[in-house]
């Protein structure tokens, strides 16, 4: 049953992801992107990583995509965005090249891959749970975790600096 669920979600994910790219209306794109996040969260749940699934939804679907939609609504008031993207020949060539390169990379990466199977003897079904995740993050990956935190802090400060519109001289 898990396997069929996996295939179901996987195909749904791909479908939604494709729809993100080919939708003409940017709002539809965003909505499909949200759906994509949901299906990815479903994958997390299949992997018994409930925490990640929930966080994925809260952060990506609940916050970031809201901001995306927010911006789109502001830009998109009454105007038609479709015509603004010019699809000339150069763009088509660039697209083909980029797509081809991506395809090559994916093929190269998948060529030598061997699918690992969990060893039932050592398999711990609780590995994706909050406690384990926390323990790993705060012991084994302490340094990277803190570095990421600092990075976020810096970017937040930067965002505030940019976002703050004050009259008078600018201090940065």
């Amino acid at each position: 049953m898990t396997e069929s669920l996996f295939f179901f979600f996987a195909s749904l994910t791909l479908l939604c992801a494709i729809m993100v790219v080919i939708s003409k209306n940017p709002v539809y794109s965003v909505i499909f992107l949200i759906l994509t996040f949901f299906t990815i969260s479903a994958h997390y749940i299949l992997l018994n990583a409930q925490f990640l699934a929930a966080v994925n939804i809260i952060v990506y679907a609940g916050a970031i995509m809201v901001l995306f939609l927010f911006v789109l609504m502001f830009i998109n008031t009454g105007k038609n965005v479709e015509g603004t993207i010019k699809r000339n020949v150069l763009a088509k060539i660039a697209g083909t090249v980029a797509g081809g390169l991506l395809f090559t990379v994916v093929v190269a990466a998948l060529k030598d891959v061997t699918l690992g199977h969990p060893d039932p003897a050592t398999y711990n079904s609780q590995v994706g749970m909050v406690e384990n995740l926390g323990k790993v993050l705060f012991t084994k990956y302490m340094l990277p975790f803190q570095l990421v935190a600092v990075l976020f802090l810096v970017s937040m400060v930067g965002a505030v600096m940019i976002g703050k519109r004050e009259t008078g001289e600018q201090n940065f």
Binding site: I34, Q50, F51, A54, I57, A61, G62, V66, L69, M73
Partner: peptide, 29 residues
């Protein structure tokens, strides 16, 4: 579920989509 509170958070954070999509789709300022 052992992440009940996160679940609620996740779901509640989606609630705003209803308002946003509805408000946007109305095509009314």
């Amino acid at each position: 579920v052992n992440i009940g509170i996160l679940y609620i958070f996740g779901v509640v954070s989606l609630g705003v989509y209803g308002l946003m999509i509805g408000g946007w789709a109305s095509n009314n300022k």
